[in-house]
């Protein structure tokens, strides 16, 4: 391609306006060629680092390959898939993941929207408030997980210390089955409520003021205005945020790994965490691959919903 570039226009900058290079030939550089040249490197990286690994995982999922045992991989057909889909262990993890996703995303949505609504009603200090609320979201899951682990410690954790000072009993947050999952939901909510808040706030501030003015002329009640003006206008954007969070929550791994390590027992093992155990502690690479592929299928379906909706919203 480069041989099409006229030699005289190597550095057109200095003389650009005074003496532009001769028009004509240069256009034939070819938009098509340029597009291919610009897009393909990025696509190649994605193919090598995302698509190829997934195809490999797909192949492994039909074998009994083990990463440590080595040796040849024997073809086992759909054996891994039936084993996973009928496994009671997997069903337990699916339920845990579902409870976690619904609980965490639900709480985040309610709280995030609530905070956004309160902030949007303030005239002053919105910028500062928003910035402060956004801090948890920017932290690494490692920092968040470790720090909450410290704060929720049964002996010297500050949460129990505060509970004690108001006369409430001590709670073994991370070492009891029920409270461990609850802790996970709480920590995730703490970190990601700002995400929903940020997007809800964008929706809320975009609602045209005249709609409210018209409504107050009509003496519409506060609740009526909220239900008929605010909510319908913010809802599409809020749904985008909720779907985004749901996909992310479904894949959750790092917070579990750091906060509870799946325990006590298996009470906080999500699907991602279970895959990690099957692959890296059980060394059943074939089974783990099938497990992973099934998870990817779910993610693809969720992502399709998300992208379709996003597309509709952009065009609408």
């Amino acid at each position: 391609m480069s041989d099409h570039v006229p030699l005289t226009t190597d550095r057109p900058g200095q003389v650009a306006s005074a003496a532009p290079p001769a028009p004509g030939r240069s256009r034939r550089l070819g938009d098509r060629g340029l597009a291919v040249a610009f897009i393909s490197p990025a696509l190649l990286l994605l193919l090598a680092m995302s698509v190829f690994p997934l195809l490999w995982a797909l192949y492994l999922s039909f074998t009994d390959y083990s990463a440590t045992r080595g040796g040849p991989a024997n073809f086992v057909g759909f054996g891994n898939y039936t084993a996973i889909l009928t496994s009671a262990q997997v069903h337990t993890r699916a339920l845990t993941t579902l409870i976690y996703v619904v609980g965490a995303v639900g709480l985040q949505t309610v709280l995030g929207f609530g905070i956004a609504y309160l902030i949007s009603r303030r005239t002053h200090g919105r910028g500062v408030l928003t910035t402060l609320f956004l801090v948890p979201m920017m932290l690494s899951p490692v920092v968040v997980g470790l720090f909450w682990r410290f704060m929720l410690d049964a002996q010297f954790g500050v949460v129990n210390s505060m509970l004690g000072s108001v006369g409430l009993g001590q709670v073994e947050w991370l070492t009891r089955q029920r409270t461990a999952l609850l802790s996970l939901v709480v920590v995730d909510t703490w970190q990601w409520t700002p995400f929903i808040m940020l997007i809800a706030l964008a929706g809320l501030t975009a609602v045209p003021k005249y709609l409210y003015e018209a409504a107050s002329i009509d003496r519409a009640s506060e609740w009526f205005r909220f239900r008929t003006i605010t909510l319908p206008l913010v809802w599409p954007l809020l749904l985008i945020a909720v779907m985004f969070r749901a996909i992310e929550a479904f894949r959750l791994f790092d917070l579990v790994y750091i906060l509870t390590n799946g325990g006590p027992g298996v009470s906080t093992e999500t699907l991602s965490f279970h895959i990690y155990k099957v692959a890296f502690l059980g060394f059943n690479t074939g089974t783990a691959s099938a497990y992973g592929i099934l998870m990817v299928l779910v993610v693809i379906v969720l992502t399709q919903f998300y992208l379709r909706y996003l597309n509709k919203l952009k065009e609408g």
Binding site: M49, S50, F52, P53, L54, W56, A57, L60, A67, I247, F250, R251, F253, S272, F273, I275, Y276, A279, T285, A288, S289, G292, I293, M295, V296, V299, L302, T303
Partner: peptide, 14 residues
């Protein structure tokens, strides 16, 4: 949007 834990298995082997 791929789950990192799933991607990391083939990437590890690769």
């Amino acid at each position: 949007f791929m789950p990192p834990v799933v991607v990391v298995i083939p990437i590890f082997l690769m």
